[in-house]
Write a protein that binds this DNA or RNA. Structure first.
Lengths: 145, 145
DNA sequence: TAAGTTGAAATAACGATTATTACAACTTTA
DNA sequence: TAAAGTTGTAATAATCGTTATTTCAACTTA
């Protein structure tokens, strides 16, 4: 049970756009090569990132670029953009608790707040890094190679 | 994409054991009734909770009870007991990044620490509540009904 | 106009979760 | 000791979400 790879793929995509965008056109085919993910899936993810105002894409001529500065895109922004998490929340509730049982009819209410807090802790952590951090680390590692 | 309901089911089970354990034998059939989850699945979850030293079960005569005090069982203990999270971590990495691409061969290294931190923030939050808290809230709500 | 690209729909492949069926092993009690 | 009820477990099916694939219209540039 894992958070869909759309999220890490999206970060990969954005990193490529920043790193290679100045030298070449970053197309869905190019991104498919780099990520190992099907080009249609890439276009799908790019579509969500575009809808969230994170990238711009060009139909026809092709290619994608960032729509705002690196330090104004957090991992949380990406995470919500590709919506790998339900409206229901990160934790899945079994759906048919017995309303005739005092525990069954209240367990949801009792757990909800605590689970939401846990999810929020995760999300706050994602808010604390921006793409600028990711790119900076990436450039450092590449230079050291 | 959600964390498997095994987790919330496990909490439901443990709550039932505490609340009803003094009046009756808490069998997998009874728990199946209360949760709405198949009795075999219940026995499966109980098996994991037993392996983690959280409950004891009785073959033959039937029934389950808690193996340690309520305030010594955190939500995190339950979460790890039913292992709804991979060894790989909460976040799923696409598996075939291109080693010939400088981004492809480094993205994992760059992201790993940050994703682990996010996961840990979630888990720390789960460590901060014990079943004693959950039961106390449950009893309060039941009394107010 | 030709070539290359995006956007999007439809469908298939795959994997993980949950449900179901079946039964051996065990405990209690009549 | 036999019957009834239960746990533990394996095997299999149903279901659902993710990812891959195929296909094609719309678009842009040369």
């Amino acid at each position: 049970m894992q958070i869909a790879s759309k999220f890490t793929v999206a970060v990969h995509i954005l990193t490529c756009i920043e790193i290679f965008g100045s030298e070449r056109r970053v197309t869905s085919d190019f991104l498919s090569e780099s990520t190992g993910v099907n080009a249609v899936i890439i276009r799908n993810v790019l579509g969500k990132l575009r809808a969230a105002g994170i990238v711009e894409t060009r139909q026809g001529s092709g290619g994608a670029n960032l729509a705002r500065p690196l330090n104004q895109i957090t991992l949380y922004d990406v995470y919500t953009a590709v919506d790998c998490i339900d409206d229901e929340g990160l934790f899945h509730f079994h759906e048919n608790p017995n309303a005739d049982c005092p525990v069954g009819r209240n367990i949801h209410k009792v757990m909800d707040g605590r689970l939401r807090s846990a999810q929020q802790a995760l999300e706050n952590e994602l808010k604390s890094t921006t793409l600028a951090d990711v790119i900076s680390d990436t450039r450092k590692i590449i230079e050291e190679e």
